[in-house]
Design a protein around this nucleic acid. Structure first.
Lengths: 258, 258
DNA sequence: CATAGAAGTATACATCTGTATACCTCGTGC
DNA sequence: GCACGAGGTATACAGATGTATACTTCTATG
């Protein structure tokens, strides 16, 4: 009833935000990246340092990207559309690049005599060690992506949960396939190798996140990761190929002294 | 300048929310629980079904609890104060109750002849199996707490991350202590047992969350959990006490046929 | 060259949020 | 028997947010 004055109030939303983003290099390379990628990049930084992806605000992201809030709608329908696109895009790139971390050692470390069980086990050990180091470097190189991605694995959004869990599963399957092909292990049961790979990737989720939060702990965490992987390898061999146990015992007792 | 009318506008915030919470049972047991616990309970349900704990709104929680937003400040200073209190309280209760899940099988399954290595290994197997079943029941009984807690392990709030990670570590230490005392395993190296326990608890984080999201998968997940734990036990024994390998091989090949 | 569409901006506004101030209502201890 | 403090409520308001409408560039293609 007393709202008659409302019509007269003008411009109360003017200067909503005081962006000072005018005329940065009005020369040639003005829009080297599209607003779409600017938004994704801004959201990645925000999500990895302040909040969960799904809880970010559309205005907040646009502000961080130096863009108008409405620009958001030019590229994405929903907020879900945005976050999902982002996770899928980042995830796909991560998946292919992390695979190199174990494929390279598998290629570089020469195959062992397939009759010499002990040599094959030693080779597996060496590959685990080299791969772990490369994976930690990979964490460093993709810090924000890892933090944001891992955060959504058990996050609140069912959509992102599904996407990230599929990513984990795919990475684990890549690992399993490569192990089956190139590790020269007597792994009769493919299912066991797949399950074990999944367990390793999941564990690396914890270790990697801890590493990114406390980089100083790298040495201890790297060793923990190697240890864990080797424990599983030994476990798999013991249950799948008990006939190799004695040669494994030799390798292990030799390693204990080092 | 055109805001002269603002002073005249009255009651624009009246009836902020249309709560219909008047006079529910005006009889005796009116306030059986304090508002403090009502808030915690409401937040637990909201967090486990809709959003991350730290991203909940204070008004949202109060609304769900049927209380006035300001009641919040009667019990907690900050929002951080609230969430931290909540996690610590729920976590402490969870820690003591989950311990029973493995302590009970350890008590109920009779000790094996300490000279009979194979018997001790079979006992460990039985304890793992029984404990896993109880732990899955525990997931069911504390669904909301698990979902909310696990979500914060890699969540955005450093405070909650610290609290939940300490909880995980404490639960893992409980497990390690009980294993060292009651599992009759030749575990020379205490550090290995602690690390392995941590890995198991972390893995159960994934498996438990998946179970709570897809209860139908219980059987497969339970088996996966048992499998994983046994693989680690075998791995630990192989590396710590290679002299037990041959009796282990017997048990394993016998189990394979079953 | 014209022009249509894509990308971006400006303004607006209803709605929700955290919080401040003030008031009410018990049960307890003096 | 009364003062007081803890727990709870009512009202208010400044600020932020998502989104709608309309305007302005650019840029590619006929």
């Amino acid at each position: 009833m007393v709202f008659a004055c409302v019509g007269a109030v003008q411009g109360i939303d003017m200067k909503d935000e005081k962006d000072e983003k005018k005329s940065e290099k009005p020369g040639k390379e003005k829009k080297v990246v599209g607003g779409r990628d600017q938004l994704i990049q801004a959201a990645l930084i925000l999500a990895s340092t302040t909040r969960s992806l799904a809880s970010l605000g559309l205005r907040e992201i646009a502000r961080a990207a130096g863009l108008n809030p409405n620009t958001f709608y030019r590229h994405f329908d929903n907020f879900d559309d945005f976050t999902l696109t982002m996770i899928l895009q980042l995830g796909a790139s991560l998946r292919t690049s992390v695979r190199e971390c174990w494929q390279q050692p598998m290629r570089k470390i020469p195959p062992a005599d397939s009759a010499d069980a002990a040599a094959r086990i030693r080779r597996a050990q060496a590959i685990v060690k080299a791969s772990t180091a490369l994976i930690f470097d990979h964490f460093d190189a993709h810090k924000n992506t890892y933090i944001t991605g891992i955060r959504e694995i058990h996050g609140a959004s069912p959509l992102l949960r599904k996407a990230t869990n599929e990513l984990v599963k795919n990475i684990a399957d890549d690992l399993a396939n490569d192990v089956l092909l190139h590790l020269q292990l007597p792994a009769d049961d493919e299912k066991v190798v797949r399950e074990t790979s999944l367990a390793i990737v999941r564990q690396m989720t914890f270790i990697g996140y801890e590493y990114l939060e406390f980089p100083k702990r790298r040495e201890a965490l790297q060793q923990q990761a190697e240890h864990f992987a080797l424990l599983l390898v030994v476990g798999v061999i013991s249950t799948q190929a008990p006939e190799l146990m004695e040669s494994m015992a030799q390798v292990l007792s030799a390693a204990k002294l080092s």
